[in-house]
Design a protein around this nucleic acid. Structure first.
Lengths: 246, 246
DNA sequence: CGCTATTTTGACCCCGTTCAAAACTAGTGG
DNA sequence: CCACTAGTTTTGAACGGGGTCAAAATAGCG
């Protein structure tokens, strides 16, 4: 039905380098959080840093799940496909997030770089060996996965029960919350992904996302500056729209 | 808008008894899986067995998340609500499943017994103490949460991109897979929850669920015997319908 | 600037919702 | 065993939010 053919070049085009954990910019938010120096050394010993260009496929749904990843720069999209090409985004990842969750040793989703990105890669087998020896690390991973699960449940509520406006408003709000610290002006939200990606994340079509954004713009709740991103003009209204309070 | 007012009696009506872990019927599928005798003894020391009647609320979204639970008998529904009453089921639980995932020490969803059920309850604080001393247990929990996350992602695909027939067919198939071992005749699936619960799980209305089931019945793919449950007559067709292959 | 991909806008349509009523089902008590 | 009630499920008819298809506008880029 629809085609998403960016996956042409498969899992290649990845330049490797010695893992620079010492000056990692996301250590506080990533897997590595709350590890001792010694533990961090052990973890860094099994990790590889790699860069991927925009549009490059990092993992493929149903491929053998040999690695776990931690995003250190850029942004990544996760998605699942139906046989006829319909696509559902299961998440957008930013620095500090991890990916590679598996089911029966197979990846549960595909992942692709939205823009040029950098990742930290851990061989699953070696990491699991470490997990059994470093309870801190395992606990950290448990917390991260639990957090993911809670977000997934929020997304179910959104997908199953919210209207188009509510979906788009909710989406903008989560982006604001995420990029909170990083951006100087908290009200200008970067939008590295395209309308079609957003649609597939919210269970809408590209057209509906576009129409809804234009409506919000007409109501002076947001502004859409050329050059990408969305400016939040009326966060209060947006919050209410997101929860269906009018 | 809509009301779901079974929650009248809050978290009461729970008869407590000394935890009978020794003859637990779900030890192999639950948290307790893969623990040594000694570890099991420690776990059972902090657990309380409790029974809840049909319709009783076990936990409430946004309540302080003081306990984790393991279902040992019956069936439980998990859900989230929007301010105006719209409801999204985030899961149905059966013996062996656990609940109590939290976000900032608050439960992320409400839970209610679909039928008379039994649960094993663990105080979160004590359990977390155990986790740091029993890596086996923490690993087990990590695996269970990861599994939940994968299922949640499947559900996102369903909610965001599948049609009504595809949703209902997928739902029936997951029920078949779950109750696989327990039921003598694999083709008779028990349906303890009502149509409205199913609707709120699939992002549909009661009416659409009903209509879709009647259609499947007319096509001789399922049968709806009086006395509850659904009989799968043509699993092959159901599988194809679930993936949109026609 | 011209070429391509993405986004926006417009017109029409359909799947699932909504609203309403009828048919079941399960208790409860005479 | 039937009558009565209350809840749930099914069926029907009409509507509408978001999808589909198509074309115009805009952005990105060599």
């Amino acid at each position: 039905m629809r085609s998403h053919s960016h996956t042409a070049s498969a899992v290649t085009t990845q330049s490797e380098a010695y893992s620079p954990c010492e000056n990692c910019n996301v250590a506080q938010m990533s897997l590595c959080h709350a590890l001792s120096c010694e533990e961090l050394r052990e973890l860094s010993a099994i990790s590889t840093s790699l860069e991927v260009g925009r549009g490059v496929t990092i993992i493929n749904e149903t491929d053998s799940a040999d690695y776990l990843f931690n995003v250190t720069a850029g942004s990544i999209k996760l998605f699942k496909l139906l046989p006829d090409g319909r696509r559902q985004m299961t998440g957008f990842l930013f620095p500090g997030d991890f990916l590679g969750i598996a089911m029966n040793d197979l990846y549960a989703y595909s992942a692709e770089a939205i823009e040029d990105s950098r990742l930290c890669r851990f061989p699953r087998e070696k990491l699991e060996g470490l997990l059994s020896r470093l309870p801190q690390l395992e606990n950290r991973l448990l917390n991260m996965v639990s957090h993911e699960l809670v977000l997934a449940q929020d997304q179910m509520l959104l997908l199953g029960r919210k209207t188009a406006v509510e979906k788009v408003s909710s989406f903008l709000i989560t982006l604001v919350k995420r990029g909170g610290e990083s951006s100087a002006d908290k009200h200008l939200v970067p939008l590295p992904m395209g309308r079609s990606d957003i649609g597939d994340y919210l269970g809408l079509t590209t057209e509906t996302v576009s129409r809804t954004l234009t409506n919000l713009k007409k109501q002076k709740i947001i502004a859409i500056p050329s050059g990408g991103g969305i400016e939040i003009l009326d966060q209060e209204s947006l919050n209410e729209l997101a929860e269906g309070l009018d």
